[in-house]
């Protein structure tokens, strides 16, 4: 169920686009929907970030994963337990660029003996890393459609990405890696029992969606070739706010485009927002210096605590008897009366 529904949903979405264009709704799929989804994406993204940022960080709660700053002669681990900005910067960079915490799982491989679970967690790290980097490169490569000329860095990426020079047009390695890693990430959720337990339909949906986008993109490039020039005209038109849809691009392109639109519209309202969230995670992006520098809680509540005076009032007699110093002496017998 959790798997079938999202799969069917993705297939239906693809079908909608294909049929929609077939019956001449090119304007809808080529112009209106892309605009709407970009607005949804940007608006949603900003709204979500704002929504998070609006909740304050009342306490400084980094998870320390190494020796903190302490006595001078004790070697400290700035990356795992940062004491200042640069430490945090380093820690966050490792986290964002190389998935440091996920990598931690793999250390366990040093334990002797065959261990399936460990290697799979290493695979998780690797697949995750490959997946995200490939996606980034592919997105950047698409930049060529948005500008009249082709920027240098895109050409560079393309040449590196296509260095294998097999097939015509050149096979991009990232295309291949993306498909492989997404497939792995899907299979991983299906193969292991406890992954099946924890996975929700919302975990499968984006995976299937991305897979479908990748496959439709690849098929356009290698199999069911579409008119790239016409596409560039369309995209340039969209970018420069000229609202007409050129015809004759081919259904597969609209499937690709529509699924991308679905993905970016869905993005801000789903777990995909981890892309933005990772930068805000208070257990990672704060320095472990809370005893050195006071952290301010904007809603620090007034709390009535039991003061020493109240305490002494209750126990004064017992304290005096036990020779514990008190602020006030016991009232003398006379005063009592």
């Amino acid at each position: 169920m959790k798997v079938i529904y999202p799969l069917v949903a993705v297939l239906l979405l693809a079908l909608v686009a294909y049929l929609g264009v077939a019956i001449g709704l090119e304007y809808l799929f080529g112009v209106i929907i892309p605009y709407v989804s970009v607005i949804l994406f940007l608006g949603g993204f900003i709204w979500k970030i704002y929504d998070w940022v609006k909740s304050p960080v009342p306490f400084r709660i980094p998870t320390t994963c190494g020796q903190a700053k302490s006595l001078e002669w004790i070697k400290r681990d700035e990356l795992e337990s940062p004491s200042g900005f640069w430490g945090v910067f380093g820690r966050m960079s490792l986290e964002v660029l190389f998935f440091r915490s996920l990598f931690r799982n793999t250390k366990a491989e040093l334990v002797p003996g065959p261990s399936l679970a460990y290697s799979s967690s290493k695979w998780l790290w690797m697949a995750g890393l490959i997946f995200h980097w490939s996606l980034l490169v592919i997105v950047l490569r698409h930049y060529r459609f948005f500008l009249a000329g082709v920027p240098g860095f895109v050409e560079f990426l393309e040449s590196v990405d296509g260095f294998l020079q097999i097939t015509l047009p050149t096979l991009y390695i990232t295309d291949l890696l993306l498909v492989i890693s997404v497939t792995f990430l899907v299979l991983r959720r299906l193969a292991s029992a406890q992954m099946r337990i924890i996975s929700l339909s919302t975990d499968y949906f984006p995976l299937f969606l991305i897979l479908a986008i990748a496959l439709s993109g690849i098929s356009m490039r290698y199999l069911d070739k579409v008119d790239v020039v016409a596409i560039k005209v369309l995209v340039q038109g969209l970018v420069s706010f000229q609202f007409d849809a050129p015809g004759g691009i081919g259904g597969m392109f609209y499937v690709h485009l529509f699924l991308v639109c679905v993905l970016i519209s869905y993005f801000p309202f789903s777990k995909l927002m981890h892309m933005g969230g990772i930068f805000l995670s208070p257990t990672r992006n704060l320095a472990n210096n809370s005893r050195e520098k006071r952290h301010i809680n904007p809603w620090n509540p007034e709390v009535q605590y039991r003061t020493y005076a109240e305490y002494e009032d209750e126990f004064r007699e017992k304290m005096v008897k036990a020779d514990i110093p008190t602020e006030f002496s016991l009232p003398s017998e006379k005063e009592k009366i």
Binding site: S101, L124, S192, G277
Partner: peptide, 9 residues
């Protein structure tokens, strides 16, 4: 509440 991807790590 929002960002868990249920990766299982």
């Amino acid at each position: 509440m929002d960002i868990c991807v249920r990766c299982g790590a």
